[in-house]
Design a binder for these strands. Structure first.
Length: 118
DNA sequence: ATCCTGACCCAAG
DNA sequence: GCTTGGGCCAGGA
């Protein structure tokens, strides 16, 4: 029969598939472009899971993802306080322009390959 | 199992 | 423009 797996490898969270799809999708966003939480979720094959995209970004190891390129609908920064400023600064450093408080999406929206709706 | 919370979204008003 | 309520989903207490 099957041996009990060692503690480290045992019971991978079953959300790991989804999270992996999210990570892969997020890494596709090039410098100077952005995508919304909902767009990332949908492009990864999980429409309606935008909140989980945020959850992932929250818990992701720093440096593992270009987190600054994921924004709220309409190009809004959803972080608060200083974190919001950091995201804005990082994006501006990549050449992203803002119109008031929101990102100019007409210019910086990333289109995922094979996505049916712009 | 229930309750609460969150880097969400959107239609209304 | 901005605020609100309801809808959505998973993780932690």
């Amino acid at each position: 029969m099957r041996k009990p797996p060692p503690p480290e490898l045992r019971r991978v969270p079953k959300s790991s598939r989804r999270d992996e799809a999210f990570r892969k999708t997020i890494r596709q966003i090039p410098k100077g472009k952005v995508a919304t939480y909902a767009q990332v979720a949908a492009a990864a094959g999980y429409p309606l899971y935008h909140r989980q995209v945020a959850q992932l970004l929250r818990t992701a190891p720093t440096g593992s993802l270009p987190w600054q390129r994921v924004v709220g609908a309409g190009g809004a920064i959803k972080l608060k306080y200083e974190a919001a400023l950091e995201q804005r600064t990082r994006l501006e450093m990549e050449g992203v322009r803002f119109r008031g408080k929101r990102i100019d999406m007409a210019e910086h929206q990333h289109r995922f390959k094979g996505w049916e709706f712009d």
